[in-house]
């Protein structure tokens, strides 16, 4: 249990560092900005109570906001993701459910499941994030393009990281 908590804290710190030190400095395009830090919320154990996911999401988003000087914007988006997480888990659940002693990993449920799960949540997170940032529907389609391309970018990074971190 202590081990689990320590591992999550470490993941939190590492993901924040990767985000603010490396990813925020990758200026590929105005339309493709990766936000990989949400992986922290995706990897939390199934049994984590909803309210805790929400609070962790708040802390995660707020930390990113502190570094990016976008106070409140990432926070609102990550809280939204945390709110959707139980619902999406239900939607993409495999036929025999999530067994005990399993975690949301490719290793347990396969690439397809993980892609579905990641893509939906990251998409909604980015959707909320970019529209809250633009705060208008004036440039509806250009904002939507940003959401789509950034989602693809983030999901790619997240999936690749899984193969690096959890090799069999």
């Amino acid at each position: 249990m202590i081990n689990l908590i320590l591992r999550n804290i470490a993941r939190f710190v590492v993901l924040i560092l990767i985000q603010v030190i490396i990813l925020d400095n990758i200026q590929l395009s105005h339309y493709a900005i990766p936000f990989m830090y949400v992986l922290f919320l995706l990897l939390l154990p199934f049994e984590t109570p909803g309210w805790l996911v929400l609070i962790l999401g708040f802390i995660l988003g707020f930390t990113v906001d502190l570094f990016e000087h976008t106070y409140g914007i990432h926070t609102a988006a990550t809280v939204f993701l945390a709110f959707l997480r139980p619902l999406i888990l239900k939607v993409v659940a495999p036929r025999d459910g999530y067994g005990s002693n399993t975690y949301p990993r490719i290793y347990y449920f396969g690439l397809t499941w993980f892609l579905k799960y990641t893509f939906i949540l990251v998409f909604f997170h980015h959707l909320f994030l970019f529209y809250f940032e633009a705060f208008s529907f004036h440039h509806f389609f250009s904002t939507f393009l940003r959401v789509l391309l950034s989602t693809l970018f983030s999901v790619t990074l997240i999936v690749l990281s899984q193969y690096f971190m959890y090799r069999k």
Partner: peptide, 18 residues
């Protein structure tokens, strides 16, 4: 769950505006 979500989201959005 929903109430916690609502509270945190309102706080975040308020910070966002402020």
């Amino acid at each position: 769950f929903f109430l916690v979500f609502l509270t945190l989201e309102i706080i975040a959005v308020t910070i966002g505006f402020r």
